[in-house]
């Protein structure tokens, strides 16, 4: 495959993986918790490196998974001890992130992790960093990592689809019929964590948030079916990734930034023009009601 094709494949995998998980975050009103996790994952990566002295994907996944769950857990703890939830999220993610940055600077000589890289990703380097097993070049390791995480997420969602669905829609009913709502919550948070860390390398922390939230929010304006929402969201993730790549080529700008901007553009258009829930549709509906009455 060509250099550009690998980048587009990586971006698309990010789009699909984030797009799918993101839908559940939006429906459960946890978008900002995902934002928090995408920041604190930095700490997980740094700690994983300091412990394992390796930049292997698996250590990063474990480190980020643990810190992601810790973030969700700390937010929960603060919330139950009386801190309002938005402030709880704000305090937890800023302090863990600050701690991560301090560790990074303190061990700057030893860690081959660049903060800018962590934040903005370096998708342009992705194709060079390949996975070789037994002398065989299997392509970029990021593709393998994203592919595995996507597969894990899909399997988990497939297995627990109805549990996730009912505990998102009606948690009281869910626990009345015996579904462990807390378990489902932490399951989703784990999915967010590993998704974030897998996407981290290519798009960076903040843009993971864009890919988690924007496609899902757009899909939410286009359909009233959960399964369709997941598909549309994944598709928008891919379109944003590929569109972002070409836009970046044309204007010679950051690929990840351009992906987020394209995603934002798609949302803006949908927000105005969506046939069901768009601004225009609402205005027209209001007009016709007024017209009928007069």
């Amino acid at each position: 495959m060509s250099y550009g094709a690998w980048i587009m494949l990586t971006g698309s995998l990010v789009g699909v993986t984030c797009g799918i998980v993101g839908c559940f975050l939006i429906l459960r009103k946890m978008a900002m918790l995902a934002d928090a996790i995408s920041h604190t994952v930095l700490l997980g990566i740094v700690l994983a490196y300091l412990v394992s002295h390796s930049l292997e994907g698996i250590y990063m996944l474990v480190g980020a998974g643990i810190i992601g769950l810790l973030t969700a857990f700390l937010v929960q703890v603060l919330h139950t001890s009386g801190v309002q939830s938005d402030a709880a999220i704000g305090v937890v993610f800023t302090s863990l992130f600050a701690f991560g940055v301090i560790l990074l600077s303190a061990f700057a000589g030893k860690v081959h992790l660049d903060v800018n890289h962590a934040l903005m990703g370096e998708i342009t380097f992705i194709p060079w960093n390949t996975l070789t097993i037994g002398g065989m070049n299997l392509g970029p390791s990021a593709v393998w990592m994203l592919g595995s995480v996507l597969l894990i997420n899909l399997i988990l969602i497939f297995l627990f689809y109805k549990e996730i669905k009912i505990s998102s829609f009606d948690p009281a009913m869910a626990s009345a019929i015996g579904i462990p709502v807390m378990f489902i919550h932490y399951l989703l948070m784990s999915m967010v964590s590993i998704t974030t860390v897998a996407s981290f390398d290519s798009v960076g922390a903040i843009l993971v948030v864009a890919m988690l939230i924007v496609p899902g929010a757009t899909a939410y304006l286009l359909t009233d079916k959960l399964i369709v929402m997941l598909v549309i969201s994944a598709a928008i993730g891919v379109i944003a990734a590929i569109g972002g790549y070409y836009a970046a080529l044309i204007w010679n700008i950051s690929i990840s930034g351009s992906m987020a901007s394209i995603a934002g553009l798609i949302f803006a258009v949908t927000f105005i023009l969506s046939p069901k829930h768009g601004l225009m549709a609402k205005l027209i509906a209001r007009r016709s009601i007024v017209a009928e009455q007069s």
């Binding site: 669905k165 009233d224 959960l226």
Partner: peptide, 14 residues
């Protein structure tokens, strides 16, 4: 929530 009436009723079977 993006779901239809039948789907909600099916939740009763879960």
């Amino acid at each position: 929530f993006p779901t239809n009436a039948l789907d909600v009723v099916l939740m009763g079977r879960y």
